[in-house]
């Protein structure tokens, strides 16, 4: 079965987490196995149980700060995932979906893949754009906006020339 990776920082009740859920369920409905990777957060949260019931795999680990001598099993797991995503992500996963531009720093240099999709889930009214321009410098990556306003905001803030990555628009949705 084909696989995709969905990356976020948590699974609490919230809009970004709901997007994780809808993407994962859509994938599953279309015979794609989603793996949800939650980085730097080992808490059990709202959607963990829901994904367990749906038999969707959730992995909680770290990729950037691996040293964790107080928890050697967690550290080994981090090393395993770090190596796997650095060197094998392309061959294991069809695509990688990162929820929120605020999570790009967690994966930009640690998850190597030719088809990374960065889902933009906030608007300027929620805070200023303080994401580095380097987030958008890879022509293989795709920035997915969920409303037209975001496209305008990005252009206004960064200017069109900054975007070497592809840009697209896809609306929020609820599965049937």
């Amino acid at each position: 079965m084909r696989k995709i990776l969905i990356v976020n920082g948590g699974l609490v009740i919230g809009g970004a987490e709901k997007l994780v859920h809808e993407l994962a369920v859509f994938a599953q409905q279309n015979k794609i196995a989603p793996t949800i990777l939650i980085l730097d957060n080992y808490n059990q949260e709202y959607y963990d149980l829901i994904f367990k019931q749906k038999k969707i795999r959730v992995v909680r680990t770290r990729l950037n700060v691996i040293k964790n001598f107080r928890a050697p099993l967690k550290m080994l797991r981090s090393i395993y995932w770090r190596l796997k995503l650095k060197f094998l992500a392309n061959s294991i996963y069809e695509s990688v979906h990162v929820i929120g531009l605020y999570n790009i720093y967690r994966v930009k240099d640690t998850v190597n893949h030719d088809h990374r999709f960065y889902w933009h889930v906030t608007n300027a009214a929620q805070g200023t754009y303080n994401f580095p321009e380097t987030y958008f410098d890879n022509p293989d990556d795709t920035l997915v906006c969920i409303n037209q306003y975001q496209l305008n905001e990005l252009d206004t803030h960064y200017g069109n020339a900054v975007f070497k990555c592809k840009r697209g628009l896809f609306p929020l949705f609820l599965n049937d």
């Binding site: 859509f26 695509s95 999709f117």
Partner: peptide, 28 residues
């Protein structure tokens, strides 16, 4: 109704998930 994906949008999303595949006939 605006929030339920139609078949064109489902294909588009599938294309994002499986960018290397021809997926037009594989929708659930």
């Amino acid at each position: 109704n605006r929030f339920i994906l139609n078949s064109a949008m489902k294909r588009e999303l599938l294309a994002m998930m499986l960018p290397k595949s021809n997926h037009s006939d594989k929708l659930a």
